[in-house]
Amino acid sequence: MNNSGFFLPNLWRFLGLWAVQGLVLIQIPSVVGYSLFNVILYPLFIFFLPMSMPRAGSVALGFLIGLMVDFVYGSPGIHASAGAFSGYVRPTVLGFFSPRGGFTGKELIPSPEYLGTFRYMQAAGLFFIFHLFWYFSVEAFTFVYIGQITMKTITCWLLSMIFVFFYGFLFNPKI
């Protein structure tokens, strides 16, 4: 698969996840009336970037989608910071879940199609923990509230993982 083949699917994923995050998921805490009920799904765009994408590319694209989400959330820099961080740790996280002997090169993106549902959930789970912990830490901007940061991370992670599972199950992206 040449690089141009990745462009359109990733562009649609970018726009789709951004729209869902900015139009639907943003409403959940106010609809439920409980601020801990946060669902963050847009990092899936960073997670589903091509396996061959260099770290610099995933950092830049993570920053970009974060910035777009910040635009809707009215929090300039906070989601962008978490997005860039997720882009940076992504290759390391995927490295943890590579098969013995490493990836073969046939795995185009880290989706259930190539990793299997169980390893997909494990890898996405760890990836989301990193993203959410960084995000809530930057949002609090001080580790004085480490208890609240941890609580928010865990709650948001549990809720988001349900969506991550259904996204992988329903769409099972191949590129």
């Binding site: 770290r55 950092v59 920053f63 300039p76 820099g77 962008a80 860039a84 961080f85 882009g87 940076y88």
Partner: peptide
């Protein structure tokens, strides 16, 4: 180390945005 450099630069940009607009 391009990934790290870009990460560091973008985090500095984020820091600037965060402390100036939030």
């Amino acid at each position: 180390n391009g990934g790290f450099f870009i990460f560091a630069v973008l985090e500095l940009v984020c820091f600037y945005l965060i402390v100036n607009f939030n």
